[in-house]
Amino acid sequence: MFEAKLQQGVIFKKIVDAIKDLVKSVNIDASTSGLSMQAMDSAHVALVSLKLNENGFKDYRCDRPITLGLSIENLSKILKCAGNDDTITLQTDEEEPSSLKFFFENQQASKISEFSLNLMSLDSESLGIPDTDYSSVIQMSSAEFSRICKELSSISETVEIETSKESVKFSVQGDIGAGSITVKNNQSDKDVDRVDLQIDQPVKLTFALRYLNMFNKAVSLSSTVSLNMSEENPLMVEYKIDDLGSLRFYLAPKISD
């Protein structure tokens, strides 16, 4: 028996919205400790990793580990039928399930919707990601990071991110010209202004803005985002989801000559 009930179903809707442009199908692994998922985009440039802890669910039961192979597009179609205030329950009682049941219930418990989604058998492409001590970690407003990436992508396809002890600089160079946005360390009380820089070693790395803009679809999951960088390593962009877990995106850098 597997059953997972989310009090705030809208979080699940937001997670699926955040990844649906990046990945088409995913294996969700359910275990006693919670749900996890890892998937790459078709070009194998970016990777998305989701972890949801059992403690963050209103009810959670998973008697034995199961893998749920899902089409994100089809999952998205079913989740459109859930209201933003609904609870969402995922359920299957089969050992090797061919479908996953969904229950959506509104706050007054006066409306209950029930759907079943056919599951797929997908090859697992799970990569081992070592625990990394990143040499530059930037925590800032997710909306501000999203705005910077969107603005710069009209000038260039790539952005160079350079850190120093005091600031982080986002630079672009395109056919029409060049520019940069520098964001300084700022210990403001307001989330929207706050910028936390933890810089052991400055880094300078270049990334494709197209992917960063896709990651920024997760902006509604968290008011802050953390950018984790080390030279010669993929960027790790993390959105923490309250008590539930985290959504992480990994992006391989561009290599300048």
Binding site: M40, G128, I255
Partner: peptide
């Protein structure tokens, strides 16, 4: 354009 690395250049199959 700068060459784009792949995520599989850094992380291997688990």
């Amino acid at each position: 354009p700068d060459p784009q690395k792949k995520i599989t250049d850094y992380y291997k199959q688990a």
